[in-house]
């Protein structure tokens, strides 16, 4: 069986050089912004000059990270936030990250199902992004996509991470304000004092507050906050807010808290520290990625060492150093 198609060849579209898209991106063309994000994702060398030009025009937007466990209600909350931010006249940008399959490399990007209506009615820019193998809760090019939206005049820009476990906290070095969304009924107060994701919050939100279990989650989080001694020095008290995206209850409280945190960052001088942290992580992360790309072992050198490691004549660490050409160095422990 075959599919039915036109007998004549399909229409072709020309490849527009990325530098030629920059002006349209800055002017806010949706087609140009969307295409530039794809070029950043693909990592085309051709796009690097254009992305460098765009970066010079970015740095104005408030970047808000929303993170939490799978099914906590992140996408639904983002959809509700788009509406309250847009009602103030804000041009809202969203990058919603979902995982890629480790087997096929494919992905189902389902966040848009919840956000489509808000994106349509509020003229927000919503882009779904697959992790493409990157760990930590974001995609490798998430921040380049944020730069593009930032340069095009979007603010706030909301980054929705993949549904995270306890340890995927990369968003902390990507956003200015971190909202950790907890769902009711998923754990007791011991879960609340564990290290990791709950520590990174600038704002705690508890979703589905229309459910009776929400009260226990809120009190566990508040209890954890009361025990904390570290973050008080910054002068910001992390609020714990109960929200319901379905009823729209207290979404504007969350919006106001996000706004207050932005104000706090600018007035206290903490914004410069955060931006420094974001830049440092981006430089190091990109350097690591470039190094990895350079070292892809196309010649199959690894084959030479496998037997020695299998025979226990050499351990994997020594073999790895040989592979990298570091055989003369004293291995660091």
């Amino acid at each position: 069986m075959t599919a039915f198609t036109h007998a004549r060849p399909v229409r072709r579209a020309a490849y527009v050089p990325s530098v030629d898209l920059v002006r349209d991106v800055l002017a806010g063309s949706i087609l140009a912004i969307a295409r530039m994000i794809s070029r950043a994702e693909a990592g085309y060398a051709e796009a690097s000059e254009a992305l460098a030009q765009i970066y010079r025009h970015s740095g104005k937007a408030h970047i808000v990270g929303i993170t939490g466990v799978p099914g906590a209600g992140k996408s639904t909350l983002v959809s509700a936030l788009i509406k309250v931010f847009a009602s103030d006249g804000s041009k809202v940008g969203v990058i919603a990250v979902d995982p890629s399959s480790p087997f096929s490399g494919g992905a189902i990007l389902g966040d848009r199902v919840r956000m489509n209506d808000a994106a349509e009615s509020c003229q927000a820019f919503v882009r779904s992004m697959a992790t493409r193998g990157h760990l930590g809760g974001l995609a490798r090019s998430t921040l380049q996509a944020v730069d593009i939206l930032d340069a095009a005049g979007y603010s706030p820009i909301i980054i929705e991470t993949v549904g995270v476990g306890q340890d995927e906290v990369e968003v902390v070095t990507a956003a200015h304000t971190i909202v950790v969304l907890s769902a009711p009924g998923l754990g007791d107060d011991i879960q609340a004092i564990k290290a990791g994701i709950l520590e990174i919050a600038d704002i705690h939100a508890v979703s589905k507050c229309d459910k009776p279990e929400a009260a226990a989650t809120i009190s566990a989080l508040k209890g954890m906050m009361a025990l904390g001694t570290v973050k008080v020095a910054s002068g910001w008290n992390t609020p714990v807010l109960a929200v319901s995206s379905v009823s729209g209850e207290r979404i504007s409280d969350l919006k106001n808290a996000i706004g207050r945190h932005w104000q706090h960052l600018r007035e206290s001088g903490e914004l410069a520290d955060r931006q420094r942290g974001i830049c440092k992580t981006r430089i190091l992360g990109t350097a690591r990625h470039l190094f990895q790309q350079k070292f892809n072992d196309e010649a199959g050198e690894v084959e030479k060492h496998i037997q020695a490691v299998m025979n226990r004549n050499m351990d994997h660490s020594v073999a790895a150093r040989l592979l990298l050409g570091w055989n003369n160095e004293v291995p660091a422990t």
């Binding site: 949706i30 087609l31 969307a34 295409r35 994000i37 794809s38 890629s100 399959s101 087997f103 096929s104 490399g105 494919g106 992905a107 189902i108 990007l109 389902g110 848009r112 199902v113 919840r114 489509n116 994106a119 349509e120 820019f125 919503v126 882009r127 779904s128 697959a130």
Partner: peptide, 27 residues
């Protein structure tokens, strides 16, 4: 997805205009 593609799903009851806007943003 299993063929290695990235798939964005719109959900139900969409108008052609909405689908086109979503397709453009998602490139």
């Amino acid at each position: 997805r299993d063929a290695g593609m990235e798939v964005v799903y719109t959900g139900l009851y969409k108008s052609p205009g909405e689908v086109v806007n979503a397709a453009i943003q998602e490139d």
